[in-house]
């Protein structure tokens, strides 16, 4: 199995995803260039921010199709102020508008980080205790970002 990860962020995702993968799927080994995948490899491309990711999705699809060795194309993006559905729809529409499709042997998986990847760290009790602060502003932010409590 080979996976192409396209992540939105420039500093968190490129550090976090490879670490997660090393625990969850240790047999999956990272390659430095997209065309170096063979068996049980993954390639990770960082998009350095949302304004550019749309162009990168199209370029990634072209790379994936040209190589023909990827089983999954995983796009990891933040939801931010939008909903998960809206974010997914945007990507589907983009691909449709550009009249491009993934080759048959590759499946598209979209991971919407709701609301953003940092939100997920709120679930780690070692990093974040449930009610750490009495500061009203902090509580307001926690309510917005902590999706587990909803």
């Amino acid at each position: 199995m080979n996976i192409y990860f396209l992540v939105e962020g420039q500093s968190v995702e490129p550090d976090v995803y490879p670490l997660w993968i090393s625990y969850l799927v240790p047999e999956l080994k990272r390659v430095e260039n997209f065309d170096e995948v063979d068996r049980n490899n993954y390639y990770l491309f960082s998009s350095y921010g949302i304004p550019y990711i749309e162009k990168d999705i199209i370029n990634a699809i072209m790379d994936i199709n040209s190589l023909g060795k990827y089983n999954y194309f995983v796009v990891c993006i933040d939801a931010d102020a939008a909903t998960v559905f809206q974010r997914e729809a945007k990507i589907f529409n983009l691909i449709k508008d550009k009249q491009i499709s993934l080759a048959n042997n590759t499946s598209l998986k979209i991971i919407v980080q709701n609301r953003c990847i940092e939100t997920w760290f709120l679930g780690n009790r070692k990093v974040y205790v449930r009610n750490p602060q009495r500061n009203p502003l902090f509580i307001k932010y926690t309510r917005f970002y902590n999706r587990i409590s909803r």
Binding site: N33, F34, F45, Y48, D56, M62
Partner: peptide
């Protein structure tokens, strides 16, 4: 670094390194 084969723009390929 074997850059240059991808369709991604050149700067984007650079910053992956």
């Amino acid at each position: 670094y074997k850059l240059g084969k991808s369709r991604h723009e050149a700067f984007k390929q650079l910053i992956q390194l």
